[in-house]
């Protein structure tokens, strides 16, 4: 499965948030969208998942226009964890994760055996099985992020979209979330599209990175191709060196010291 957008323009009134955007994301791959604050990363992610309307262009899932999909049909193929989500604090983990089955259910149906099986799988694969009887407010930040990822996984999507999944988490939970994403991709073959702020993490987990600057695509490619000191200067206006260290697969970004 592949989602591809061509010639997207998103905005309202005079304001143009994103323009001339061509972007493809695939099942089986981890694609990361990076760019400065306000560059339009989340906007693109939302357009690719039909959470946001676009003025021009088209988004296709395989060869079919995304707009033609019935809401539940789309939700069975594409899972999105928005940046902003909330649940009543007394919701139980297991119940929350169960909401991921909504696209498979009629408005009157209860969880089937199949639903229960998928819920259990999602709880186990995200390491939230032990939390299942707890309520959301009893979970730590990292735990609750994994619970939300489990909720989206329960939709059994072919591509998982995560909007800044590590923001507000401490470094240990950030890395834990990245490991989870990577494992889901490698073991279940699920496609992942993320918006990330941390470039080191993007470098480490991504198969492909798309750089967005001021609403337009600046570059795309493998992490090695994209993360360069020139890109850092032109997109972020930051001086840095990209260091390759023997024994490490991925390079490090060494920012110039603050003098």
């Amino acid at each position: 499965m592949e989602i591809s957008a061509s010639n997207l323009e998103i905005g309202y009134g005079e304001y143009v948030a994103v323009q001339d955007m061509d972007i493809q994301v695939k099942k089986g791959e981890i694609t990361t969208i990076i760019g400065p604050n306000g560059s339009g990363k989340s906007t693109v992610l939302k357009a690719l998942t039909r959470l946001l309307k676009y003025r021009k262009g088209i988004v296709r899932l395989d060869s079919r226009d995304l707009l033609q999909f019935e809401a539940k049909e789309l939700a069975r193929r594409v899972g999105v964890l928005p940046q902003r989500h909330s649940a009543p604090p007394d919701f139980k983990v297991k119940d929350l994760v169960g909401y991921g089955r909504m696209p498979y259910q009629k408005w009157y149906s209860k969880n089937s055996a199949e639903d229960e099986k998928v819920i259990d799988w999602a709880l186990k694969v995200t390491g939230t099985w032990e939390l299942r009887e707890k309520s959301i407010h009893q979970c730590s930040g990292g735990e609750s992020q994994r619970v939300w990822i489990a909720t989206v996984l329960t939709q059994q999507p072919e591509i998982l979209f995560l909007d800044e999944p590590t923001t507000y988490l401490d470094i240990s939970h950030q890395l834990e979330t990245m490991r989870l994403v990577r494992r889901l991709n490698r073991e279940s073959g699920i496609g992942v599209v993320m918006v990330l702020h941390d470039l080191s993490q993007a470098l480490e987990v991504s198969d492909r990175i798309v750089v967005i600057k001021e609403g337009r695509k600046y570059s795309e490619g493998t992490p090695d191709e994209v993360i360069t000191s020139r890109m850092m200067k032109e997109v972020y206006d930051v001086d840095c060196e990209i260091l390759h260290i023997p024994g490490r697969k991925n390079p490090l970004i060494a920012y110039r010291e603050i003098s």
Binding site: L51, L74, A75, V78, H85, S86
Partner: peptide, 9 residues
């Protein structure tokens, strides 16, 4: 939340 609900179909 709206976006979550929407993405659940």
């Amino acid at each position: 939340g709206d976006e979550m609900a929407k993405s659940l179909g």
